[in-house]
Design a binder for these strands. Structure first.
Lengths: 228, 228
DNA sequence: TCGACTTTACCGACCGGTAAGTAACGGCCC
DNA sequence: GGGCCGTTACTTACCGGTCGGTAAAGTCGA
């Protein structure tokens, strides 16, 4: 029915020639970056539907049409933020975890890197979780697919552990969602300016998640992850 | 600044005399109950800001002013649903957990009852989590206080376990939030009409949460909870 | 007749989005 | 150097539509 435009991956800003350097993501562009970062923060704090384009425009010291010079629409703005967040997950979690061959070491990297990410770059990650309803159909499908791939990556790691007898006899789907619950929930409560150091929180959370699903023998607290 | 009306606890419907029986909650009232239940479902599915009073009215086969005969305003509607959800938590989780004296048994009751609740009565509970931003200041304070009391109840249980040396040397705040993350996340993924039986999911989730925070010795899988 | 309930009609505010205009700036021909 | 043009980066003014909420006039059973 509705003709929806969908940039399948994170749309890169339409930077004309301008400068020489190519930008990796539109979050890095001078003005567009400011727009996307502040929009992410505002949507995180107030919710997508409750955040108007006018408010976003004001926050970046523009008028609404001035904002529309940089952004195609409200949904596209949300979609771009979510793509940025998924990119971060892929780069900071999945790619690093794939370096670990042993499934337990891999799981430790997944949890600790994910937790680390969710104690730093909160707003974009939290939006990724909550505001799928604000997307168009095609956009939602695209984001859901990427989420699903991430989920499967974790579950396959658990399945490898279960095949080795190193995991408790628990359904791997339930276990994956439980681990995700622990680390996703971080963005709801952890305050980077609060009393708790992110390092210790990440360490504690990692220990809880690993001990929760692994059999007692293998899970020793401490250690950054993958061995010699 | 703004003069906000706040019914401190769950507002009971303004049932005139009508029948003889007193209703425990306005969710039980014939018409009001239908309104609150369907509103909870819609807000859960679409988000509070994206759900209009017109849509809610249509869903319960009323016009908008007809709906306003029963509810004072949109915020009050949301607040009433959240109070209902907190009441459920108090009755179904806290009250039952307090019957268990041993902190480990108590923790097991907390997790399993909470998980059970979040695999059954999803919509109201999920709203309780997500839509605090839709409330007025005074309402938000009231709900936050009740949430805080619930959080403290869990953390005190963990502190008792740690004093006994039965819990891993982890920050109790982090541990409490991790447990909450596991069980709160249930409402995001568990589908009661899906392939997984709620009983096994509740059991698995309970095992993960308890093994995550307890030292290996005490946590034996299985068992409904409190012993002889 | 009374009060519980429901309707039609409407309010001002704000929503996402756009049309049209323009100030500033570089490059380019003469 | 002066006149001209195209692009970039915005602005003012405005669109139709929907929002939460209400006034007022019924309707209808007890």
């Amino acid at each position: 029915m509705t003709t929806e435009t969908l940039t399948e991956t994170a749309p890169t800003v339409a930077t004309p020639k301008k400068g020489g350097r190519r930008k990796a993501s539109l979050f890095d562009d001078e003005r567009a970056g400011r727009i996307y970062r502040t929009a992410a923060k505002m949507i995180y704090e107030k919710g997508f539907a409750a955040t108007s384009m006018n408010e976003i425009a004001e926050a970046v010291e523009l008028t609404k049409p001035g904002l529309y010079y940089y952004v195609k629409g409200k949904k596209e703005l949300l979609f771009a933020i979510m793509c940025f967040a998924m990119d971060l997950l892929d780069v900071e979690v999945v790619a690093r975890a794939e370096e670990a061959r042993d499934p337990e070491a891999r799981l430790r990297v997944i949890v600790s890197r994910h937790a680390h990410l969710f104690t730093q770059d909160v707003s974009a990650m939290a939006i990724l979780i909550d505001e799928v309803g604000g997307l168009s159909e095609a956009q939602r499908v695209a984001i859901t697919a990427r989420k699903r791939a991430y989920f499967d990556f974790i579950r396959q790691t658990l399945e490898a552990l279960q095949a080795d007898g190193r995991m408790r006899p628990i359904d791997t789907t339930t276990a994956t969602f439980s681990i995700l619950g622990i680390v996703m929930w971080l963005s709801r409560w952890y305050q980077s300016d609060g009393r708790m150091a992110s390092d210790t929180v990440v360490a504690d959370v990692t220990e809880i998640a690993l001990n929760g699903v692994l059999t007692g023998t293998g899970a020793i607290p401490g250690g950054a992850g993958f061995g010699p």
